[in-house]
Computed example of a mutant assay.
Amino acid sequence: MPERIVVTPRSAHGHPAVDRLRAAGYEVVFPAPGAVPTPEQLQDALAGSVGYLAGVEPVPAALLRAAPRLRAISRNGTGADAIDLVTAEQLGVRVLRAPAANAQGVAELTIGLMLAAARSLPFAAASIRAGEWGRREGVELSGRRLGLVGAGQIGRRVARVALALGMSVRAFDAYPDASFRPEGDFAFAPLDEVLSGADVLSLHAPPADKPVIDGPALAALPAGAILVNTARASLVDEAAVLAALDAGRLRAYATDVYAVEPPGVTALTAHPAVIGTAHIGGYTRESIERALSAAVDNLIDALDSDRERSGDD
Rank of each mutant, 00 (worst) to 15 (best):
residue 122 P to R: 00
residue 243 A to Y: 01
residue 162 A to Q: 07
residue 50 V to Y: 06
residue 152 G to W: 00
residue 287 S to G: 06
residue 206 P to I: 01
residue 108 E to M: 03
residue 159 A to L: 06
residue 307 R to S: 12
residue 34 G to H: 06
residue 143 G to K: 09
residue 11 S to K: 09
residue 1 M to F: 12
residue 307 R to H: 13
residue 64 L to A: 04
residue 96 L to M: 06
residue 255 T to D: 05
residue 39 P to S: 08
residue 67 A to H: 05
residue 93 V to W: 05
residue 281 G to T: 02
residue 134 G to Y: 10
residue 9 P to W: 01
residue 3 E to P: 08
residue 273 A to K: 10
residue 140 E to K: 11
residue 309 R to N: 12
residue 305 S to I: 07
residue 283 Y to D: 11
residue 49 S to E: 05
residue 268 L to S: 06
residue 3 E to D: 15
residue 209 D to F: 10
residue 176 P to T: 03
residue 4 R to E: 15
residue 29 V to E: 14
residue 146 L to D: 04
residue 212 V to G: 09
residue 37 P to H: 03
residue 266 T to G: 12
residue 33 P to G: 06
residue 201 L to G: 02
residue 9 P to K: 00
residue 165 L to V: 04
residue 156 R to N: 08
residue 224 G to D: 02
residue 164 A to T: 09
residue 116 A to T: 03
residue 36 V to G: 10
residue 175 Y to A: 14
residue 4 R to P: 11
residue 4 R to D: 11
residue 265 V to L: 15
residue 290 R to C: 01
residue 299 L to Y: 00
residue 180 F to P: 08
residue 304 D to V: 13
residue 278 A to C: 11
residue 176 P to Y: 02
residue 256 D to E: 07
residue 291 A to D: 00
residue 254 A to M: 01
residue 57 E to K: 05
residue 8 T to P: 05
residue 292 L to K: 00
residue 260 V to W: 09
residue 128 I to N: 11
residue 45 A to N: 08
residue 33 P to Y: 07
residue 209 D to L: 13
residue 230 T to K: 09
residue 243 A to P: 05
residue 12 A to S: 14
residue 4 R to Q: 15
residue 268 L to Y: 07
residue 105 G to E: 00
residue 121 L to E: 03
residue 62 A to I: 08
residue 302 A to C: 13
